[in-house]
Design a protein around this nucleic acid. Structure first.
Lengths: 237, 237
DNA sequence: GCACCGGACCAATCTGTACTTGGTTCAGTT
DNA sequence: AACTGAACCAAGTACAGATTGGTCCGGTGC
């Protein structure tokens, strides 16, 4: 090419021609640009020059790039479900509790509005299962099922999916031991009472009380673990 | 086998032997039972009989089954991320707004606690981009990016993943036209002011106000669309 | 020494395919 | 009438291969 004649001139011209691709009329519906290799071939410059041009556009906020996905005009589209599952192993305990404290009280509120008598019966059975379990696994299991059933009763598919996303992280991480140690004998009966209060609020269709009961329960759980972390030796990743 | 000798006796014996598998000691860590075909071979009875036995255990709440996944002791483990993505196309607009009204105000609250000056600058740029966009696509795009950036500022990976899950549904569904019609000229300036109020609250590190500002904004958006649906012809799946 | 090119390699992502598994139906057998 | 075996369907999983942006290195021409 004419690279020899005008040193340092390839990127600017490439930049100009790529900028022309960003107008709404010339964009595909997913706002995706050709790949860097493709642009390199189309514009007759090296991929390095293309990348420099794209660096400028990115700094201007006009494009965004994601390795493996492509280059897009404007902000990044949300990534696929399978992709984000991996990053969630990094979550720490407090982060999960933060999310749970945000979503579960409203879920309980919705459940109180929409659950029928059969749902209340299911919830009641689960709290009893959890309370009567002898081993740690059983408690974990039925406690988890209890919270998920509330999410089901909320009657919102998307909200249930959100809950499952959080729940999966919660179960994958190795905090079972931590939580179990936080469940002293006195704490267990406290939680049992809180569970009952939640179920009772839902049965009586008292949304406010259900929300507050759930908030109280999760706060107690968090505080208990926090206290454990302070006294215990282990740090919690 | 001896099926001929004791009619109706296969399922009960199978039930008994499967029940023995449910004790915690004999269960694998994922609490998964052998497949129905495997059980059928192991116990020397037909798959039909195995299924009848499993029906009983399921009715008792001791196992749960999911096609494609397997049979599990106790409640179902949450399904994979990729699997639940499909079911979300069924979500309706009000359902999505319900979730957004639950999660985004707390996200704004957290953002106000944790965002730094650079974050506030980014948010400010995005509101301006959204406000200055001439076409509907541009507004949609930058508005979406604005809300996502707030989620980023909250500094909670899991919470961000939750937001993305909701956001993907929001974008996939064909409500762009609906939302755009809801954006009358007066509504647009209203939203612009609300966006600014959110950014301002975050910049001033006022969590309460940020949360309320976000709640106000989403409520206004929902009300606007609801009013549209009442007057407009189309129903909204 | 400088700017660029070509190529190679890595890591994140996406896609498609083949397999597994519970759910269902149906003809055959005793 | 009850069970069996087999086939098929639909939901879910798991794995491999291709694509794509990110990075680095040696070569080329001035």
């Amino acid at each position: 090419m004419d690279a020899t004649g005008r040193p340092g001139d390839n990127s600017p011209t490439a930049l100009e021609r790529i900028r022309a691709l960003l107008h709404p009329e010339t964009l595909p519906s997913d706002r995706r640009l050709p790949t860097e290799r493709q642009l390199s071939e189309d514009l007759g410059v090296s991929r390095r020059s293309v990348r420099r041009a794209l660096d400028v556009l990115e700094a201007e906020g006009r494009i965004s790039r994601r390795r493996g996905a492509g280059t897009f005009a404007g902000p990044c589209p949300p990534l696929n479900a399978s992709a984000m599952s991996e990053r969630l192993a990094e979550s720490d305990f407090m982060g999960v509790m933060e999310v749970r404290l945000s979503i579960e009280p409203p879920l309980a509120e919705l459940a109180a509005l929409r659950a029928d008598a059969r749902d209340a019966e299911r919830l009641d059975r689960m709290t009893k299962n959890a309370h009567h379990s002898q081993d740690a696994d059983g408690r974990e299991l039925w406690d988890s099922a209890f919270h998920r059933t509330i999410a089901e009763c909320a009657g919102n598919e998307l909200y249930l999916a959100v809950f499952d996303l959080v729940d999966r992280v919660r179960q994958n991480a190795e905090w079972r031991q931590l939580r179990e140690r936080a469940r002293t004998h006195s704490a267990l009966s406290l939680y049992a009472g809180q569970h009952d209060a939640i179920v009772e609020s839902i049965r009586r269709r008292d949304p406010e009380r259900a929300r507050e009961a759930m908030r109280t329960h999760l706060s107690a759980l968090r505080e208990s673990v926090v206290r454990m972390m302070e006294t215990g030796a282990d740090d919690v990743g």
